[in-house]
Amino acid sequence: MDWNRVEGNWKQMKGKVKEQWGKLTDDDLDQIAGKREQLEGKLQERYGLAKDRAKNDIDSWYDNQTWH
């Protein structure tokens, strides 16, 4: 997985992330700034997910994107 594509295009990716995880606020997305670890942490915080579950959900979301 090349997360650098997400990080490098974060402004465009924020909308896709928000569609997937609507509980994330705009402030959350600004704090995440494309960093995967930050996204994992915010998913754990907002959705009450375990670390492994957040990681797996992100992997699944990434794999389903048509741009990679």
Rank of each mutant, 00 (worst) to 15 (best):
D2T: 15
D2I: 10
D2E: 12
D2P: 14
N4Q: 07
R5A: 05
R5H: 10
V6N: 00
V6D: 04
E7C: 06
N9V: 11
W10S: 06
W10I: 15
W10E: 00
K11G: 04
K11S: 12
K14S: 13
G15C: 04
K16F: 05
K16W: 07
K16Q: 15
V17A: 03
K18Q: 14
K18A: 15
K18P: 05
K18S: 10
E19G: 03
E19T: 08
E19S: 09
W21C: 13
G22Y: 14
K23R: 15
T25E: 02
D26G: 08
D26E: 14
D27V: 15
D27W: 12
D28E: 03
D28F: 03
L29R: 09
D30Q: 12
D30K: 14
D30G: 04
Q31F: 11
Q31M: 10
Q31R: 11
I32R: 03
I32S: 05
A33N: 11
A33C: 07
A33I: 03
G34D: 11
G34W: 09
K35I: 15
R36E: 10
E37I: 15
Q38W: 05
Q38D: 05
Q38C: 08
L39W: 11
G41L: 10
G41M: 13
G41E: 04
K42G: 08
K42M: 05
Q44I: 00
R46D: 00
Y47N: 11
Y47D: 05
G48F: 00
G48D: 07
L49H: 13
L49D: 04
L49R: 13
L49Y: 07
L49P: 10
L49I: 02
A50P: 05
A50S: 08
D52P: 02
D52W: 01
D52C: 01
D52R: 03
A54F: 01
A54I: 12
K55S: 10
K55R: 10
K55G: 02
D57R: 14
I58L: 11
I58E: 01
D59F: 04
S60N: 08
S60W: 04
W61D: 08
Y62I: 07
Y62N: 02
N64G: 07
N64T: 04
N64K: 08
Q65K: 02
Q65P: 09
W67H: 02
W67A: 02
W67S: 01
H68G: 14
H68Y: 09
